[in-house]
Write a protein that binds this DNA or RNA. Structure first.
Lengths: 193, 193, 193, 193
DNA sequence: CATGAATGAGAATTCATTCAT
DNA sequence: TATGAATGAATTCTCATTCAT
């Protein structure tokens, strides 16, 4: 029972992720998500009080996991530039696996409540990079700079290059590797590392 | 009365811009825009065949003007790095005047038709920067690099720094000047200039 | 001036006929008709108090002319069967020249006011045939029969064969001649002539 | 609850039929039909994907049943003239029960999708009569004739006599019986049977 | 008289949320 | 507890008619 409840909750979250990845938040209607999860809409509403809160959780979950990984990298005992490069590359690599999901999460707003969550998430990303930057500046590895602005620039740079419409097309593994490298180089040089 | 017609068209475009700036395309319903323009919905439809086309025009208008300015900068007879810095700073400066509108233009998707226009617009931005980059690479001013990826990164960087939630808050003129400088430095260093 | 007024009125009626013939009443919007007549909608409303009354007049005009011709045939000093055959063939022949107009007039309802006019028009057609039928019955040329029903059947028969969707396709002159003959034969035999 | 669902679907179809019978397709707005069925418009859309498809189903339902009956008659093992007479009389008899509905079905076009269905339906009717006619012609019972044109004429004749405005008014049972007989005689004689 | 811009009621359709079973 | 049918507010778009210029 407890088992079952948790199961349903996970199924709903998963179904939402998949639909968002497919067609963006626009295509993730409550009824479609419920159907994909093998549940009724009524049941979905037993687990989530509203569509917005469901979306917020899907978003937060994905981002939390990402932040965990990036934080680990940020905490490593190596040069800041290495950490920065690793963090960027790590994020980019995973994002390339599911671009639409990343796009929807990063760029597509839905309603104010979800939008607020999206903002918090980007802020979290920025904070990770700011941490690395500040460490590098303190250690003299990076030149003095506005780490807020630079962190924002970094997040923006890889977001756009990854999921934005003007990013280079990445069809095969080689293309992807090149793109990751290009973005890493860009960001590293940008902060003077 | 020619006067009057043009007026209405402009009023509608202006009302749309304002509502978009306030609450994104989401809040720019036909009836709300018409009311804000002091017109009936029927009249709005005399000037624009559909909501989507109205949005597309609002979008392209703003972007076309921007592209014009950036292109002029890109064509100047000075070092590529100077042109790049000037272009970034120029864009950022103007964008800081109406951040929400910029956000809606750059980041918010609406429906397929408008989304297509948004993509074209971002591509235009990217192309301007790619032109500068390639010139700089050819002249040996910048190191060899993937100019597609770098152009995307640049657009993403300043977009995010400007309108993204993680960008530093800019309350006064001094803050703004600092932000512009930070973004310019970031982008210039990023491409090795 | 007087000249001009009459001209405009005729132009409007003609433009209406043409648009109806092209796309049915559905496509004959006031603004489209006015444009086709080279006038403004406001001017159109100086000549016709409403769209419905305009349509009614277009309808009545066309039918009145038709009735005139049929009445002449009905009044000829020849056998009833010959008159009947001639009337049917005469109507059918002209209708084949502009099938869409005929169809719209005969079968397509628009709004109650126009529909009422349409009913009156069909009644007029029926009356012509009833007159011929009654004459033929009186003279012993046709067997006794319900001339109301038979007249309705005749109108229905040629209407359907002409403009209905199940009528045989008539692409060339030969086809048309055959169709006219088939309908005439059908109607003549039907009344026992 | 299965019960309930089917009920609603039927209720919607019935409500549509009734409104169509009253005022034609024109008066069968989605909201009016839903209200007449005791449902919300949203619910109506659970059962029918669009107004057009609802209309098409109302149309085809009625026609399919009719065609079934007529086909049975057409297949009987009696003289073609008897079958023709029986088919006409059978159709007319039932149609006299709901003249306006029949009119809307047979004569009133609405939008392209529904109009297409209407055409298919009339074609079905025509085919039944063509079958009988061809059989009669083959057996020598009817003289050689264009069975396409004649079938169209027959459908047109009884349609008009039934639902057209010029048909005789039929107030009581005796009148109706006479009308049926008049139409049957008309059609039979028309094909030479 | 002529114009044609403006009006605004009305129609179809969608979908998050509720609640009787 | 689960269901999913029902709801109805909200939104886009059309077009006959009016009236200030």
């Amino acid at each position: 029972m407890e088992e079952r409840l948790a199961d349903n909750r996970e199924r709903i979250l998963l179904a939402t992720r998949q639909r968002v990845a497919d067609g963006g938040f626009r295509e993730a209607q409550v009824s479609a998500v419920a159907a994909a999860a093998g549940l009724s809409t009524g049941t979905l509403y037993r687990y989530f009080p509203s569509k917005a809160e469901l979306f917020v959780e899907v978003l937060t979950r994905a981002v939390d996991q990402e932040i965990l990984i990036l934080s680990e990298i940020a905490g490593r005992d190596v040069a800041a530039s290495e950490r920065l490069g690793a963090a960027v590359a790590s994020f980019v690599r995973r994002a390339l696996a599911g671009p639409n999901l990343a796009y929807a999460f990063i760029a597509e707003p839905v309603d104010p409540e979800v939008e607020a969550a999206r903002i918090r998430c980007r802020k979290q990303f920025g904070d990770v990079f700011k941490t690395i930057l500040n460490a590098g500046i303190d250690s003299g590895e990076f030149p003095a700079q506005d780490s807020d602005a630079a962190a924002a620039c970094i997040v923006g740079a890889f977001t756009e290059a990854l999921v934005g419409p003007i990013g280079p097309s990445t069809r095969n593994t080689r293309d992807k590797a090149r793109l990751i490298e290009a973005i890493r180089t860009f960001c590293l040089r940008a902060v003077g590392g």
